[in-house]
Write a protein that binds this DNA or RNA. Structure first.
Length: 521
RNA sequence: GGCCCUGUCGUCUAGCCCGGUCAGGACAUAGGCUUUUCAUGCCUGUAACACGAGUUCAAAUCUCGUCGGGGUCACCA
């Protein structure tokens, strides 16, 4: 039995669409589940420039998500080159063969003549079928047309009767009438070949057994099958995936409709969250490249690739009625085309975030440290070289923050541990409420500060006890002082546990920050 | 418009093939508990078979029709 081979064939567009990456993921999952190969082929054209540059974000995104390819750019393989632009010789051979076998013909019509026929059909409300008036079946025909100053394109000689029955792995049986198919052009007048032909030829050459692609290609399938059959190629299996739709709609997700998606609250929140992180690490977040429709976005702000993969896998596939959390390894063991759904699935930023949280919770402190460190460095909260003390500090913050760090970039929310005391930023509202308008609290803070000054073991537990004793002595409730204390040492009213803050800051910084507040007051 | 695909809570989905469940789970949402804040965690609630016929003792499930949503109709990929 021959090995299962699937492929993902992106155009070098300069970005990796989140829907595209889901298709690539399913291709790879299916191949790996069946111990086959996943191939990456680049569908560029001769005219495209800067292919390498435009390819970079795509390769990078796939690699980041662990959608690694067995053959293709960089890694090579037995069927090099994996670039369509470098394979044109094969296409010319295929066109010649099609012509020779009589499954294609040279067409000498002019574009406006075809258009006129098309318009006429539309006016009469009937399906357009080319009259083949300028079809050259003999050399004499060709000569005559050429004398009229015409040039030819090569068209498929599509059957005008009968039907095609396609057994799609996801759609089931789909029937097309050949009469509805056009005589599609496969080669232009300048000799370059069109996508559908190139696609089929490459799939044959690369021995692709399963064509797994998005639903939008379903109606293109008959013409491709016609080429396959005409050339006597091996027929691949087909699986047309539902596409990833806009949040709250069934329309295909598109990079260009960012403005529209921003009206969706969850989508806007996700982007906003990303922008906050991007700004702090000095990343240009204004361009349309910084966009949740593009895979890069998630990498830049500290998503976990396995969380994105988990979410994407569940967007159109399910194992059963309750399992949702999967590692990439589990997915390759459990994936099957049979359980792919048929209807388009809307992209839901909140559910993605929820997967991110769940996956982040499985990470150890050391793992989170490795994830968060680059963000702290880019934001210049810590230097490029890390000494032991800094590493300890960051790890303590990560442990104290716990589940509050959902994205690696969220570490930047805990800037109070990394800035010098005199640069601590005080949240205005919190300062007003807890310090400026609460003299009682400030007075208590002053008193408690004296206790801290003579307290030597600065661990969370003993600090907790110290405060409790203070409360008892003063006969007050914890709320009467703790909010002021939090704002004094952290500058904000939200964050990690109070005693963790004090312990991490240490005696010296804690007291200095309280004194700063008392001075300000 | 033609052709093709598709329709279960707001969202992702299980169930459909092989009729019988209070139509299940997750995210979101509402309320509660835990609590020094925020977050986590735990408990509870609200919420769906697009519509109409038919078959049947019984329909989300089978049949027909209607309506809705989407894709595609290039000398783009």
């Amino acid at each position: 039995m021959t090995s299962i081979r699937t492929r993902f064939a992106p155009s070098p567009t300069g970005y990796l669409h989140i829907g595209g990456v889901r298709t690539a993921l399913f291709c790879r999952l299916f191949a790996k589940k069946n111990h086959g190969q996943f191939i990456l082929r680049i569908d560029d054209t001769d005219q495209q420039r800067n292919v390498e540059e435009a390819l970079q974000p795509i390769l990078n995104g796939l690699r980041w998500l662990g959608v690694d390819w067995d053959e293709g750019p960089i890694v090579g393989g037995p069927f090099v080159p994996y670039y369509q632009s470098q394979r044109s010789g094969k296409y010319q051979q295929a066109v010649n063969e099609l012509l020779r076998r009589g499954f294609a013909y040279r067409d000498y019509s002019r574009p406006e003549e075809i258009q006129a026929e098309r318009d006429a059909a539309t006016a009469e409300k009937r399906t357009f079928v080319y009259s083949r008036r300028w079809m050259a079946e003999t050399e004499e025909d060709a000569k005559r047309f050429e004398q009229e100053g015409r040039a030819y394109v090569v068209r498929l000689k599509t059957p005008r009767e009968g039907r095609l029955v396609l057994n799609d792995h996801i759609r089931g049986q789909v029937v097309f009438d050949w009469a509805n198919e056009q005589d599609h052009v496969v080669q232009r007048a300048d000799g370059s070949c069109l996508y559908h032909l190139a696609n089929v030829v490459d799939d044959q050459e690369l021995q692709i057994t399963h064509v797994i692609r998005a639903e939008e290609h379903l109606s293109n399938t008959p013409r491709q099958i016609f080429i396959i059959q005409s050339l006597g190629y091996n027929m691949p299996e087909y699986a047309h995936l539902p596409f990833v739709a806009e949040p709250g709609s069934k329309t295909k997700l598109s990079k260009r409709k960012l403005e529209k998606y921003l009206k969706n609250r969850d989508f806007a929140n996700l982007l906003e969250r990303g922008r906050r992180i991007a700004e702090r690490i000095g990343l240009e977040a204004k361009t349309d490249e910084f966009n949740p429709v593009i895979t890069d976005f998630y990498e830049k702000i500290g998503f976990l690739p396995e969380a994105v993969v988990n979410y994407l896998a569940l967007l159109g596939w399910s194992l059963d009625d309750k399992s949702e959390f999967f590692t990439p390894k589990e997915l390759t063991e459990l994936f099957s085309l049979e359980r792919v759904t048929k209807a388009a699935a809307s992209f839901d930023p909140q559910k993605l975030l929820s997967f991110q949280e769940k996956h982040m919770q499985t990470k150890t402190t050391d793992e989170k440290y490795a994830l968060c460190l680059p963000f702290l460095q880019k934001a210049k909260y810590i230097g490029g070289t890390i000494d032991a003390a800094t590493e300890t500090l960051v790890k303590k913050v990560i442990e104290a923050a716990g589940d509050r760090i959902k994205l690696a970039g969220d570490i930047l929310d805990f800037d109070e541990f990394f800035v010098p005391d005199d640069q601590l930023n005080y949240d205005k509202a919190a300062y007003e409420k807890r310090i400026a308008n609460d003299p009682t609290a400030v007075a208590l803070l002053d008193e408690f500060c004296d206790k801290l000054a003579v307290h030597d073991s600065f661990d969370a537990e003993s600090l907790d006890k110290l405060l409790r004793d203070f409360l008892e002595e003063k006969q007050i409730k914890i709320g009467q002082i703790i909010h002021a204390l939090r704002v004094a040492v952290a500058g904000k009213s939200v964050g990690v546990g109070m005693f963790d803050i004090l312990a991490i800051l240490g005696k010296e910084k804690t007291i200095r920050r309280i004194k700063n507040i008392l001075l300000l007051y």
